[in-house]
Amino acid sequence: MPKLSYLKALNRALGDEMNRDPSVFVLGEDMNLALTNVTAGFLDRFGPDRVIETPLSEQGFTNFATGAAMAGRRPVIEFQIPFLLLLVFEQIANQANKFSLMSGGQHAVPVTYLMPAAGWRTGWGAQHSDQPYSIFAHMGVKTVMPATPADAYGLLTTAIRDDDPVVFFGPLASLGVREDVDFAELAPIPLGVGCVHRKGTDVTVVAIGHLVHDAIAVADELADEVSVEVFDPRTLHPFDWTGLAASLEKTGRLVVIDDANRSCGLGGEILATAAEEMRLIAPPRRVTRPDGAIVGASPELDVALQPTREQLVTAIQRVLKYGGDAA
């Protein structure tokens, strides 16, 4: 089977949707040169009416996309830097995401906000290394963060077809991930449906974004001593609570690994919901960033503040101390 990379999956999904639906167009900065490679070849394929290079005017072009969506188009905005999503947080969370409500259902605003390189990158500084997905989920904006190429293809396709605004986080650390795929089987993946990448019976590890791959590696590493189930929510809002409950029904133990700040992060919400509503035989744990910023200027300092496989191993061992026979 051919290999598909995450980055190529984004390119393929967006290109397929633009082929299928003439209302889909893409806009963003440095689009004509396809700087991020997500839109590589698109200017020639689709022309300048559907591949729109914008000025450095994020608030303006995010509102512009809202207007185009109200008028029947399906804009996909590509952002190069995670913090730009904070600059346009108001335009997404308070405007685009509320016009259906405020119009009593007259408006739909089907915009996809594609962030193809979220998270830390070596030496790019404290302002370029965030993963602000939790705050979009907090505000009720549909938010996806697939970990694998096939999921990236399927969820970007779904995001573009969805009638509401959807923020798509593609973690930088996943962009180079490649997997064997049958191109004929690439298909939309519904929002709010998680995926068990590895079955297990002792502990459920919920991993988000690129950390899914770390969680799978840790599960393999610990396979002789503990049976780890790796649950990837894929969509952060709406979250697959049913899928998580089913996993915990088996394992009763929960660890979350989440590359976001600790306070008010998605990891905290997952723990709280599991504690309130699901079967737990051990106090749950989470591995996150600390509150505050990743340094971003020196790899030694940067990595020291990011969730690690070692921390995940320790957290798994701690939850195994509870609940009797499993450990």
């Binding site: 303006g60 995010t62 509102n63 512009f64 185009a68 109200m70 008028a71």
Partner: peptide, 14 residues
């Protein structure tokens, strides 16, 4: 003031 760019987007589509 944010309607200005929303209007531009509607106008572009039109």
């Amino acid at each position: 003031g944010h309607g200005a760019a929303i209007a531009a987007g509607i106008a572009w589509a039109s």
